[in-house]
Design a binder for these strands. Structure first.
Length: 275
DNA sequence: GCCCAGGGATGCG
DNA sequence: CGCATCCATGGG
């Protein structure tokens, strides 16, 4: 579905890639839209995405990184078929987010970002992450990198309050103190159950934030983060009054199994962008 | 002024 | 275990 050159990725199959849908599906908080160009930032890297009716061109200094970032070796059309075969009533939702893909993002950046996301809204999450990049990151040509863990450890609670993180600032400071790059990488070896227990033991990370980190940074497919939007969706589309989010999550994961994370993104995108 | 946003920590039974 | 309450911040 794609070809590469030294500093370009060219996508011809737009039946399963739409950059605007990907950016608006709530899995990434570091990007800028300028005119018809999309600037995507991950850790210390940048990609410029230009999508037209016929093709999509991604410009970057690190082609391999963004091939993995956009999960380009996965066939999402096959997943859609498998999902619709079993759940034909999801047709509208699957087609609405036809171009969504699950991003493989930077682990450290996701730890920090998802803790900030708790009981927050997307514009303010983006604003806080940008503040952290601009005031603690390293300036590249025309953007700022996400700070290294070493740099994050130098920041105090006041810095995060200044970033607009509110009462999560204390949790962030405590979380950062407890992290090491070694353990962050070693978590990669754990299965979903064990990884979730580890993540939930960290400051600022509960059930939902753990699910989001596992979805966006650890390639876990059998997770279904339940936030306020998914809860509303569950009440509407599953005709339920259940308000225990852990019970909702359990039922959804039992239903969608290894398609859980993908279906969750499709639902979230539909809830926020439809009408 | 109230309610809400991709919830988590804490305490209490 | 389940449950209630509190937590900061800004927009609608």
């Amino acid at each position: 579905m794609y070809t590469t050159t030294k500093n370009q990725i060219i996508i011809n199959d737009l039946s399963q890639f739409n950059i605007l849908q990907i950016l608006k599906s709530g899995q990434i908080f570091s990007y800028d839209i300028v005119g018809d160009k999309y600037y995507v930032y991950s850790a210390d890297k940048k990609a410029i995405v230009n999508q037209t009716q016929k093709m999509c061109v991604i410009q970057t200094d690190d082609v391999d990184y963004f091939v993995n970032f956009f999960d380009l070796n996965k066939d999402y059309n096959n997943d859609k078929m498998q999902i619709l075969e079993k759940y034909p009533n999801l047709k509208e939702i699957v087609e609405f987010g036809y171009g969504i893909r699950l991003l493989n993002q930077d682990k450290l950046e996701m730890f920090i970002t998802w803790v900030i996301s708790a009981n927050n809204n997307i514009p303010r999450i983006m604003k806080a992450v940008k503040y952290i990049r601009v005031n603690a990151g390293e300036k590249k040509q025309d953007y700022y990198t996400f700070p290294t863990l070493e740099k994050l450890k130098e920041l105090d609670e006041k810095f995060f309050i200044g970033a607009g993180c509110g009462y999560r600032s204390k949790q962030l400071k405590k979380l950062i103190d407890s992290l090491s790059m070694k353990t962050i990488e070693e978590y990669d070896k754990l299965n979903t159950f064990d990884l979730k227990k580890k993540l939930e033991s960290l400051s600022g990370i509960g059930s939902k934030v753990a699910d989001c980190i596992m979805l966006s940074a650890y390639k876990k497919a059998d997770v279904f983060p339940v936030d306020t939007w998914i809860e509303k969706m569950f009440h509407t589309y599953f005709n339920s009054k259940e308000n225990n989010r852990n019970k909702i999550r359990e039922e959804l994961v039992n239903t969608f199994k290894n398609y859980s994370s993908y279906v969750q993104q499709l639902f979230f995108y539909y809830m926020l962008n439809n009408k």
